[in-house]
């Protein structure tokens, strides 16, 4: 009996971005990334939460995959079973957290009924599959991870696996991309210079009102007028950074508010639950933001 799932199970290293993700560039970051990829220079993405870093990586994985596809079509590859050679670039994303150790990235032995079995970690898989490995919020990870990262980011492009006594040379398509948010982590968690100087850095910030309105309209499906107002709200709230708010409203919360509006929730209420209450617990600031909301939304 076969069961139909409405989900897909994909091995980590085989995940590729099929459809074009929606992305509006703010400057030349696409060209820079493409250039970096061509030269296999690791990329560091800096910027506050919700400024589209992850979306950018997805977009770039798709975009680079497309160009590979063109190449693949042209050169009629012989290894047909690999999805990458069929015109896709695998994207392995690892969200780093404070307990993430090197072996979580590289892999470990697991006990088996008849002994032990080695299992590759996501980084190892990406290295082997020749995809983009995206380490989100990399500073959160334990310090021992940096030792693993370093040889992958210079001319060596190798991954050392102590437990196996192996060194893996990265597949041609492999590129390490990391991101971090310089604002909200404390000084303790700043990226070490020896690490950060192995990357080219792209800075991300919130898009301007007009671009953000387009993003909101696209992502949430809300009408243009409301998207504009949401974008204006976003920029007004971001004015409060440093004046009481730690982080401004991310584009994401604006999109969520937009989705609620699309579902028929009144704009003011949607902003309250989607934006105001999400970004702060301070009742005074909430009230101030509510006033901004009620000024902007009729």
């Amino acid at each position: 009996m076969t069961t139909r799932h409405d989900y897909r199970e994909i091995p980590v290293e085989e995940y590729v971005v099929d459809k074009e993700p929606f992305y509006i560039s703010s400057s030349d970051e696409i060209e820079v990334f493409e250039a970096a990829y061509r030269q296999r220079v690791p990329v560091l993405l800096k910027g506050p939460t919700g400024t589209g870093k992850t979306r950018f990586v997805e977009y770039m994985a798709w975009r680079l995959g497309q160009s590979l596809k063109v190449q693949a079509d042209g050169s009629s590859s012989d290894e047909g079973e690999n999805r990458r050679s069929a015109g896709h670039l695998p994207l392995v994303t690892v969200a780093c957290h404070e307990d993430l150790t090197a072996s979580d990235l590289v892999g470990r032995y697991l006990l088996d009924s008849n002994g032990t079995r080695w299992i590759d970690g996501p980084l190892t898989r990406a290295v082997k599959a020749g995809g983009i490995c995206y380490l989100d919020e990399v500073v959160e990870a334990r310090k021992d991870t940096t030792v693993i990262i370093h040889p992958l980011t210079d001319h060596r492009r190798t991954l050392t696996i102590d437990k196996l006594g192996e060194v893996i040379e990265a597949a041609d398509g492999f590129l390490l991309v990391v991101s971090y948010n310089p604002g909200y982590q404390n000084a303790m968690k700043d990226l070490k210079h020896s690490t950060r100087q192995r990357f080219v850095a792209l800075e991300f910030d919130f898009p301007d009102e007009e671009r953000e309105a387009r993003i909101i309209a696209h992502e949430s499906g809300v009408d243009e007028k409301n998207a504009e107002l949401l974008a204006r709200l976003g920029s007004k709230i971001r004015n409060l950074r440093e004046h009481g708010l730690e982080e401004g409203a991310s584009t994401r919360v604006l999109i969520y508010a937009g989705r609620l509006i699309k579902e028929g929730i009144s704009p003011r209420r949607a902003c309250q639950v989607g934006v105001t209450w999400g970004i702060t617990d301070d009742s005074q600031i909430q009230r101030s933001i509510d006033e901004v909301v009620s000024s902007i939304f009729p």
Binding site: K236, I237, N239, L240, H243, G244, Q284, I285, R287, S288, I289, E291, V292, S295
Partner: peptide, 10 residues
């Protein structure tokens, strides 16, 4: 305080 934040936001 509310108005101040409001004005700062604007």
């Amino acid at each position: 305080d509310i108005l101040r934040m409001y004005c700062q936001a604007l």
